[in-house]
Amino acid sequence: MRRTDWSEVQLHVVTGKGGTGKSTVAASLALALAAEGRQVLLCEVEGRQGIARMFDVDPLPYAERRIATGLAGPGAGSTQGRPGTVHALHIDPEAALLEYLALYYKLGRAGRALDRFGVIEFATTIAPGVRDVLLTGKVYEAVQRNSRNKGAVQYDAVVLDAPPTGRITQFLNVSDELAGLAKVGPIRAQSDTMMTLFRSPRTAVHLVTVLEEMPVQETADGIAQLREAGLPVGAVVVNQVRPQDVAPDDLADALAGRLDRSRLGADLESAGIEVTDALLDGLVAEARDHAERRALEDAQRRLVADFDVPVVELPRLAGGVDLGGLYDLAATLDEQGLR
């Protein structure tokens, strides 16, 4: 595992295959970044209100809302340990377009006329490129906040809960996406400016995976595509890792079906548990299942190590991910230097 300095990164993009927990990772990362008084914005673009559910707040409007206090540092109480703040923003393309028109073209009335004529629905439906430019455009604005947006919060970092791995390069590569549609014109110029940020070291695209064959393969493909497009790959976040507290020798024995039952029995007895054959059988069977899974995970972990990308690992939370779980995961990210 390689440790990297992420402190220069202002935009953390979090992607991952469906079912790997990318939204959970994005939320935890936002909490981890919001330490030492820092202001962090967590954005979602897929209209699922996942942030509201995770943080147990009302559905988010298209406006930045303060939703949580960041992770408290080790020196809690001192200035250093003072947690920061996480704001959240639910970006929807139609609202983003109206705001964009008002902000950059002073098109207040015409903007509403466009809406009335269904142009906005049309534009955001037919051309995913346009849709993506609007979504990423808002993210860009939050990162590059300037005098145009008076009185808005200035963020130290922005975390984007982005579309899945299969679509991420296309999503961020807005100029290419628009190339076929708009060769010149203002929207083209705007997307070129955005690309400059996305391709710079101020951006990092993190890929979330679990240690299974398909997600790992998709992560490998995703990394290759990002690199080809000149987009900066951040870390691979290996999520839902199984507990590691059985010794390698015992794992091998469990897999081979020759676990030392008398030793296990003695251990259990010494813990004050009444030992029965059924209990021993049950635990030995569970150990075997676990060892099988671990062997597969280890094979995938070796593949991940070959990606030549910093790797961080997050444990599987047996009780599910609640708000407390998010802070636990944030602390784990922080320990591994992803903050």
Binding site: P243, D245, V246, R263, L264, S270, L283, E286, A318
Partner: peptide, 15 residues
Amino acid sequence: DHELGAGLLRLHADR
């Protein structure tokens, strides 16, 4: 010094 038992109990609890 009861690694095996402790490990398997933890696994069991998790499962």
